[in-house]
Amino acid sequence: MLQINGLYAKVEEQEILRNLNLNVKPGEIHAIMGPNGAGKSTLGNILAGRPGYETTAGSISFHGQDLLEMDPEIRAREGLFLAFQYPVEIPGVSNMELLKASVDARRLHKGLPELSAIDFMKMAREACKAVKLDQSFLKRGVNEGFSGGEKKRNEIMQMMLLEPSLCILDETDSGLDIDALQVVAGGVNAMRAEDRSFIIVTHYQRLLDFIIPDYVHVLAAGRIVKSGDKSLALELEAKGYSWLEDEVA
């Protein structure tokens, strides 16, 4: 599914990722944890192709193709989805309008016809229900006046609609209360499938109480310094990150 080899990347002339390696197979859930400034969000942005994030060495293969060669919209159409840490507002553009365009862009890319408005609405309503968002959110401007929790649920709703093969959740759990956290986790768990993988970037282990990862990686100083299973997350929760940083040093 996704193979990252020896990745180096910088943002505004500052090197953030240094020799990062990661292999994600279909159906797996990988949790990426680590201290502030370790490069967790940079990884998500590099994968999605955000302008300003520059790869200086290494390679990323996605479904056997060179990901770094693709424009951000092509990556999206190929099935890569990033749930944003800070979803931005687009005044006047309804959620519905953006999502219909997204779904259709994805379908056309796969050689499928555009979805009829009726079929689309049926799917969109289902997705809203799954994340406990009122249907009125479909008609509202994208993230316009949404609360923090609503924005995150809106991201998961979009993810469900677009049915990506690789879902990257960039600190989706930050700032969520326990109910919203369960909704987000419920969405992810409902989407688990043999041909779908997840990269879950998080600070805290509490999300992992609801989404059980196959692997937990610790990202520090721009590379993965330790990998393990769910128990690593618990260890981190108890001991913090400093012991790992000392170990690396």
Partner: peptide, 16 residues
């Protein structure tokens, strides 16, 4: 840039 990137991440090209 953030608005543009959000749209592109959802599969829309820059002009759209």
């Amino acid at each position: 840039d953030d608005q543009m990137f959000l749209c592109q991440q959802r599969g829309l090209d820059a002009e759209k």
